[in-house]
């Protein structure tokens, strides 16, 4: 555990909780892509199956349970509790165009051809592109509420911090995981355009357009 890893995890946690609280407090999920949230629930489910097979640390177990629980709570709020406010007409990204190729890639490029390892690899690849329905939705409507942009910022910063974590681990532990690193770089790049807009516009205008 190093400072980049810890702040990355906390940033990820902050993003998840910001989104949950935003939906809960405003009683609305307008502007939020339910499809991205379904993909994140799928990411956490397939990645954290090792909760059932191995114990790593109390921190690890607690965070995994919180991430999975929050992901499903978010999906529940969007598709059940506050379904009337869900902006389905603008959430039109076809997620099969992500899930199918990512599934194929996980079968072809992985560390080991075993069910758990393939599902873990699938989750890493899928996470790198899971935000696309949300970004697509924002580009379609042309705007996002400020709190939604804070959510996206924290979510993007998390993987960027993990990149520094991996550099740290390579130098000090000789550890590297090429699958995670390449997917992490892709994931961070997808947020770059958003980061630029966030820094230049959100804090100045308080309205993201």
């Amino acid at each position: 555990m190093n400072v980049f890893r810890l702040t990355g995890d906390l940033s990820h946690l902050a993003a998840i909780i910001i989104l949950l609280l935003k939906i809960w407090k405003t009683r609305s999920c307008a502007g939020i892509s339910g499809k991205s949230q379904i993909l994140f629930a799928l990411v956490f489910t397939t990645r954290y199956l090792d909760l059932l097979t191995s114990f790593i640390s109390l921190y690890n177990t607690c965070m995994k349970i919180i991430y999975v629980g929050c992901a499903y709570a978010t999906v529940y709020l969007i598709y059940a509790k506050f379904r009337a406010t869900y902006d389905g007409n603008h959430d039109t990204f076809r997620i099969e165009f992500l899930v199918v190729p990512v599934g194929g890639l996980a079968f072809l490029v992985n560390h080991d051809f075993s069910p758990l390892e393939i599902l873990w690899t699938f989750s890493i690849y899928l996470e790198s592109v899971a935000i696309l329905p949300q970004l697509f939705m924002i580009s379609k409507t042309g705007e996002a509420e400020t709190i939604t942009t804070h959510y996206l910022f924290c979510l993007g910063v998390y993987r960027a911090l993990y990149l520094f974590n991996w550099i740290w681990r390579f130098y000090f532990e000789g550890f590297f995981d090429m699958i995670a690193i390449v997917a992490g770089v892709v994931q961070t790049i997808l947020y770059c355009d958003f980061f630029y807009l966030y820094v230049t516009k959100v804090n100045a205008v308080q309205r993201f357009q």
Partner: peptide, 10 residues
């Protein structure tokens, strides 16, 4: 392969 060891990252 060390990547097949327990995955401690989230």
């Amino acid at each position: 392969d060390q990547n097949l060891q327990q995955k401690d990252e989230l």
